[in-house]
Amino acid sequence: MLKVDLDTKVKFLHGFSHKTRIQILECIKDNEKTVSQIVEDIRGNQSNISQHLACLKGCGIIVGRQEGKYVYYGLRNQQVRDLLTMFDVVLEGVKNDVAYCENHIG
């Protein structure tokens, strides 16, 4: 079994701990997109989206690919895509508990 340092695991999971970052991940789950495309799709502002993209990139969840004057952002690999899908699968079974959880209001 793989052994990952607890602090590293917490930093990685932090990438998934904000609504805007989850929106970004869902937005680029199937296709790479530029910042402008992401901003339009999730109706955010460019500065805020860029900060969240930096966090996701720093956590190793996404990658950026330069093409001309644009940077295209996408998920790092299939495992991250699978993890996002697994979140949905797990949440399907516990969504009512999560909805009523008062410990983590965000």
Rank of each mutant, 00 (worst) to 15 (best):
M1K: 06
M1R: 03
L2N: 05
V4F: 08
D5E: 11
D5Q: 02
D5I: 02
L6D: 10
T8D: 14
K9A: 14
K9S: 14
V10L: 13
V10Q: 06
F12S: 02
L13D: 07
G15A: 01
F16M: 06
F16A: 08
S17E: 04
S17C: 03
H18W: 01
K19H: 05
K19S: 14
K19T: 12
T20L: 15
T20H: 03
T20Y: 03
R21F: 01
Q23H: 11
Q23K: 12
E26T: 02
E26C: 11
E26R: 07
C27I: 04
I28Q: 06
I28K: 02
K29D: 09
D30L: 10
N31D: 12
E32T: 05
K33D: 05
K33C: 07
K33P: 00
K33Q: 12
S36F: 01
Q37S: 08
Q37E: 15
I38H: 00
E40D: 12
E40H: 03
E40N: 09
D41H: 04
D41M: 05
N45Q: 05
Q46P: 10
S47L: 05
N48H: 07
I49F: 02
S50D: 01
Q51L: 06
Q51A: 04
Q51P: 00
H52W: 06
L53M: 07
L53Q: 05
L53V: 02
L53K: 00
A54F: 09
A54R: 07
C55D: 11
C55E: 08
C55P: 00
L56K: 04
K57I: 06
K57N: 12
K57S: 15
K57W: 01
C59A: 14
C59N: 04
G60P: 14
I62E: 02
V63E: 15
G64P: 04
R65H: 10
Q66K: 10
Q66E: 15
E67M: 11
E67C: 09
G68D: 13
G68M: 08
K69N: 13
Y70L: 14
Y70F: 12
V71N: 08
V71S: 05
Y72N: 08
Y72D: 04
G74C: 08
G74P: 04
G74L: 09
L75A: 07
L75N: 03
L75H: 01
Q78N: 13
Q78C: 10
Q79S: 14
R81N: 08
R81G: 12
L83A: 10
L84F: 00
T85D: 15
F87A: 07
F87E: 03
F87I: 11
D88A: 13
V89K: 08
V89S: 12
L91F: 12
L91C: 14
E92Y: 09
G93C: 09
V94A: 14
V94Q: 10
K95V: 09
K95E: 15
K95L: 13
D97V: 04
D97C: 07
V98G: 06
A99L: 13
A99Q: 11
Y100L: 14
Y100V: 15
C101W: 01
C101I: 11
C101D: 15
E102Q: 08
N103P: 00
N103I: 11
N103Y: 06
I105F: 06
